[in-house]
Design a protein around this nucleic acid. Sequence first.
DNA 1: GAGTCGTGGCA
DNA 2: TTGCCAAGACT
Length: 354
Amino acid sequence: MTPEARAADLLTWYDRHRRALPWRAVAGERPDPYRVWASEIMLQQTTVTAVKPYYERFMARFPTVQALAEAPSEEVMQAWAGLGYYSRARNLHACAQAVMENHLGRFPDTEEGLRALPGIGAYTAGAVAAIAFDRPAAAVDGNVERVMTRLFAIADELPGARSLIREKVLALLPHDRPGDFAQALMDLGATICTPRSPACGLCPWREPCQARIAGMQESFPRKAPKKAGVTRYGAAFVLARADGAILLRTRPAKGLLGGMAEVPTSEWRADYELDGAAQDAPLPLSWTQVVEPVRHVFTHFPLELTVFTGSVPERTQAPAGMRFTKLANLAGEPLPSLMLKVVERAGLYSSKTR
DNA sequence: GAGTCGTGGCA
DNA sequence: TTGCCAAGACT
C-alpha cells in the first residue's frame, strides 16, 4: 500500500469520526491562527478536558492576539492559574507581543517562522503550520509518537526515537489536507490508539499495524523509566487580617510557579525542620499549626506544606514586598492550585473546581 | 541528553 | 491509595 493510500484511509476515518473541539474550525472553514496557537499552547502536556473551560474563558477575555499582547501580565497569569506549567503563560504573552511588534499582528505561516517565537517548539510549530495554514508539516506529539511506534513497531526508546518517528510521519504526509492529516493523527491517538486498551478493532490502520500483528500494541511506545523525586517539606503562613484579607506575595518571575501568587512560605527542602518554622514566618506573632499538612505532587517532587494560621488587627500593614488581598478578591489573584489548597486548609476559603 | 516545570483524572 | 501520565518547551 502506498503512503498516499494509507493517509487516505486515515482521512476517511477522520471525516467520519473527527472530534468537535472548541478550537477546531468546522469542516471546510479556515481556522483562526490565533485560536489554533493558543489552544496548542494550552494543550501542551494538558488534557482536553482540563483545557476546555480555560480556553473558553481565555478567548472571551483575550479575543485577539492584540488584546492578549496589550493585557497586563498579571491578568494573563490569573487567567492561566490552575492550568500548570506557568512558563507557558509567560511565553504565550511574550509571543503575542512578538507577533504584534515583529510580524504586524499576523502569525508567521511557516514552521521556521513559528519556531522562532517564544514557547513554540518543534511540535507546536508543526501543528500551527499544518492546522492553521495547511502547510505539509509534521506535528509529532505524544499521540503521534504512540501511533507511529505501534504502526511500525519501533522498539527504540523515547525520546531517542523521535527523529525516526518524524521521518515516518513526513513519509506519510499527503500533499492535500495536511492540516486534517495532523489532526486526524492526534484524534486517532486520543480516541483509538490509546495508551491502555487501544481499540484496534476500530482502527483504520489495524491491518498494517506491526504492533497489533505481533499482539504487542500496549508495549509501545517504549520509554525509559523515570526516577521518583524526593519529598520536600516546608511551612506555609496564612495570615488573616481582621477585615477579611490575607497576606500574599508574588513569586519570582522564573522557576517553579514563576510569577504566580502565594502565601508566605519557608523554603521547601527535603530536610526542613518544622521546629524552627516560626523563624520563617512573615511576622513574629502567635501562629497556630493546622494538624493535617497540604500534600501536593509536582512533576519532579512531592511537597508537604504544614500550614500555620495567624491573625492581625485591621490597621496592620503588609511587610515589604507583600500585600493583603480580601478573600472576596482571591479569585482575581494568580493563585496556583497548591496555594488554593493551602488557603482552604487554613479554613478560610472554599474554591469550586476551576 | 537529562533535568525542570503543574495539575487532575483514572486504573 | 499509589503510580502513571496528557496536544512539550527550555536550558
